[in-house]
C-alpha cells in the first residue's frame, strides 16, 4: 500500500500536478492525529514506575502494548535509554520505519535524505544543528531502524521534576526527545 501511494505521489509530483512542499505541510498537520502523545505517556510511566521500566527495557513491544498501543504484525519495538554517559539517536533509511503507534507520523526532516544519511555519518554534527551539543565524554549511539525493529529513545528525566505525576511529566516529553534529537528540558523554577 505504501509503495502504491508513493508511486502515484511521485508521478503526480513530477508532472507538477502536486506541490510536494504543500503536501508535506498537510501531512504534518495530520501527524498529531496518531500523535507522539502515546510515546510520551510510555516515557512518563517508565520514569515513575521502576517495575514498568524494567518490563519496557526487557520487552518494549509488550510493555507498550499494555497501553493499548500496538502496530502492524511483526513490528518489534526496542527502547534505548539515555544516561549521563550515553545519548541515543534514531534514524531510518526507509521513511516508513518509524514507530508510528507511539510517535505518530514521521516529521518531514526525519524523512529527508540529508537526515537519513548524515545521522549515521556525523551524528554529533546533526545533533548540533538541532541545537543539542553533546559533550565529548558522552557516547552517541545511532540506531538504524529496519522494517522489523523500531526504536524509541527513553530520555533522561530532567532535574526538578520529582513532584510531578506521570501526566504532568508526559506533557514535558517531546517527539524530538523520543527520536533523540532533543533532551527533555528541566523545569525553570
Amino acid at each position: 500500500m505504501a509503495l502504491r501511494v508513493k508511486a502515484l505521489e511521485s508521478l503526480l509530483v513530477e508532472k507538477g500536478l502536486v506541490d510536494p512542499a504543500a503536501l508535506d505541510v498537510m501531512i504534518d498537520a495530520y501527524e498529531n492525529r496518531i500523535g507522539p502523545r502515546n510515546g510520551a505517556r510510555v516515557v512518563a510511566r517508565a520514569w515513575t514506575d521502576p517495575d514498568y521500566k524494567a518490563r519496557l527495557m526487557k520487552d518494549a513491544t509488550s510493555a507498550i502494548a499494555e497501553f493499548g498501543y500496538s502496530g502492524a504484525q511483526g513490528e518489534h519495538m526496542v527502547v534505548v535509554e539515555n544516561t549521563p554517559a550515553v545519548h541515543n539517536l534514531v534514524v531510518c533509511t526507509l521513511c516508513s520505519c518509524y514507530p508510528w503507534p507511539v510517535l505518530g507520523l514521521p516529521p518531514v526532516w526525519y524523512k529527508s535524505s540529508a537526515y537519513r544519511s548524515r545521522a549515521v555519518i556525523d551524528p554529533r554534527g546533526v545533533l548540533a544543528e538541532f541545537g543539542l551539543a553533546v559533550p565529548d565524554e558522552v557516547a552517541v549511539r545511532v540506531w538504524d531502524s529496519t522494517a522489523e525493529i523500531r526504536y524509541l529513545v527513553l530520555p533522561e528525566r530532567p532535574a526538578g521534576t520529582d513532584g510531578l505525576d506521570a501526566e504532568a511529566l508526559a506533557a514535558l516529553v517531546s517527539r524530538d526527545a523520543m527520536v533523540g534529537v532533543a533532551k527533555v528540558p528541566g523545569l525553570t523554577p
Partner: peptide, 26 residues
C-alpha cells in the same frame, strides 16, 4: 470528534494527496 484518524502513515499520505489534487482543481 476532531477529524479523520489514520492507522498508518501511508493512509494520511493518500488522504492529503487527494485533498491537494482537489484543491488544485484536478
Amino acid at each position: 470528534a476532531d477529524g479523520p484518524v489514520f492507522a498508518e502513515p501511508w493512509q494520511a499520505q493518500a488522504f492529503a494527496l487527494t485533498l491537494q489534487l482537489c484543491e488544485a482543481g484536478r
